[in-house]
Design a protein around this nucleic acid. Structure first.
Length: 468
RNA sequence: GGCCCCAUCGUCUAGCGGUUAGGACGCGGCCCUCUCACGGCUGAAACCGGGGUUCGAGUCCCCGUGGGGUCACCA
């Protein structure tokens, strides 16, 4: 049997972390089984659904590299079909009209709550004669749930889950205004789209029982369900706006790489022995639902960050430069061709010290800065009169000796100058660093010198010596 | 409250009846060293509690406790 999975977000905001992982797992499962990964926008009515949110979700999926195998289906465009299914259910007695008003329903719930009874529709109109219907009131259509027996879901993640049918109430399929509810729409669409595996958040597990009854009523084959444990915030509660950055776009903006996010999300609730760094190809080869854990996981930015640092180092210098230029410009640096090539040459030393693109950009700024370069507080403190004097001696020695402008020669020369000055190498190295980078922290000195180039090194040295 | 799910270091997890309970992130120390990282070595850190089953339970069962989810004419 071929596999078809789907990701079905409701477009009420950006693509959040939990949704991203659900999408990833669906995508991986489909790719692993060489099946199809579909997209469906659950916009059944709702003024909550917006075009901007749809775009944000597509953007997020795109960034993560989760490509769908067909254009997205908009649930709102399937309304006629949903109504048609309800008509069929009505015709064969699997559904019925209910004229209870919202007020009556609310009162019913309050009463149940007060009497500490389960809160559910009491079936008022289940067997009542429609002739007794109040006039001028539009009914909703409810499904006629079995009242005895049990519903079993053999969940691919959670295992066998059973609920007594008596726990299930006759939920609404069609609202009084004739629009279909989510509970009906998902089932019809999953069936019509030939979805074989419904992989979604754990928060839908209870819905699965009700939806199973709709499949049953229509005589449709039940898809395999796989309910993923939720991702919680650091406090252990379901992710929500109060946890701050919950949209993948926020992480992209902070300079996280999609491959790092994918790897992190994959390991949240799924594992493959002791493997931590897992490429997408490996993930596709290894992924399966039986290795998905059953307990909720907390989102840990530190671990994401560590993974990101790893993938940053694996990126090519050229692509990193391309990603950095806009960030440097946003930081207020005009990136000239000369500065860009200095950056390109210095990237290897820069990237192994970075964790995210934003801090990479900050640490890279001195390469694209135009002279005289900005000097931070720490570097300014290093560049006192004594240090400037050492730099003067060093610069002069550079002129006299003219060492080959290559790493071993440069280092040998600098060490010799330090010795001649009668100071430890650090006493010369730190001022040099401050002069060349304007920082107290930077990649290796000689890496920096090679990346800057001889002329720029001399010029920055001159600037630093003259600095007051 | 009803129903459902979950429970190994702080966090993510390995473990699938017999292990010195492993790895990763984070944290401490040491080494490397021109700063900071990287890297290497190393340390502290966990089986929620109680009953069973068994020669033997982190692993199986039950109860408790704790956490989470869900109970709409939202999705």
């Amino acid at each position: 049997m071929s596999v078809t999975t789907r990701f079905a977000p409701s477009p009420t905001g950006f693509l959040h972390i939990g949704g991203a992982r659900t999408a990833l797992f669906n995508w991986l499962y489909a790719r692993h089984h060489e099946g199809k990964f579909l997209l469906r926008i659950e916009d059944t009515d709702r003024e909550r659904s917006t075009e901007a949110a749809v775009d944000a979700i597509f953007d997020g999926l795109d960034w993560l590299g989760l490509d769908a195998d067909a254009p997205a289906v908009y649930q709102s465009s399937c309304r006629a079909r949903h109504v048609e299914v309800v008509d069929e259910l009505l015709a064969n007695g699997k559904a019925y009209r209910c004229w209870c008003s919202p007020d009556e329903l609310a009162a019913m719930r309050d009463r149940a709550r007060a009497e500490k009874r389960p809160i559910r529709y009491d079936g008022t109109w289940r067997d009542r004669d429609p002739a007794e219907a109040p006039v001028g009131v539009d009914p909703v259509i409810r499904i006629r749930m079995p009242q005895t027996g049990e519903t079993v879901i053999d969940d691919a993640v959670q295992g066998r889950v059973v609920v007594q049918n008596a726990e299930l109430d006759d939920m609404v399929l069609l609202r009084a205004d004739g629009t279909p509810t989510y509970m009906l729409s998902v089932v019809v669409d999953d069936h019509d789209m030939d979805v074989t595996h419904v992989i979604r958040g754990d928060d839908h597990l209870n819905n699965a029982f009700r939806q199973a009854q709709v499949f049953e009523a229509m005589g449709w084959r039940l898809p395999v369900f796989g309910h993923l444990p939720l991702i919680h915030g650091a406090d252990g509660a379901k992710m929500s706006k109060r946890h701050g950055a919950v949209g993948v776009d926020a992480y992209r903006d902070m300079g996280f790489l999609p491959e790092a996010m994918r790897n992190y999300l994959l390991r949240l609730g799924w594992s493959h022995g002791d493997d931590e760094i897992i490429s997408t190809a490996q993930a596709i080869a290894w992924f399966d639902l039986d290795a998905v854990g059953r307990s909720a996981a907390r989102f840990d930015v530190d671990k994401l960050t560590a993974l990101n640092a790893h993938y940053l180092r694996e990126r090519g210098d050229d692509e990193l430069v391309a990603m950095l230029v806009p960030r440097l410009e946003a930081l207020g640096f005009a990136v000239e061709p000369a500065g860009e090539s200095r950056l390109r040459r210095g990237m290897a030393g820069l990237k192994q010290r970075a964790r995210r693109l934003d801090d990479l950009a900050e640490s890279a700024a001195f390469y694209v800065a135009s002279r005289p370069i900005p000097v931070d507080a720490k570097a300014a403190k290093v560049l006192d009169a004594d240090a400037q004097e050492r730099l003067r001696v060093y610069a002069a020695a550079l002129e006299d000796t003219r060492p080959a402008f290559a790493e071993p020669a440069l280092e040998g020369h600098a060490r010799a100058v330090a010795e001649q000055l009668g100071v430890g190498f650090g006493k010369l190295a730190q001022p040099l660093r401050a002069a060349l980078t304007g920082r107290g922290v930077s990649p290796g000195l000689f890496d920096v010198m090679m990346a800057l180039g001889e002329a720029e090194v001399r010029a920055r040295l001159t600037d630093a010596i003259a600095r007051k």
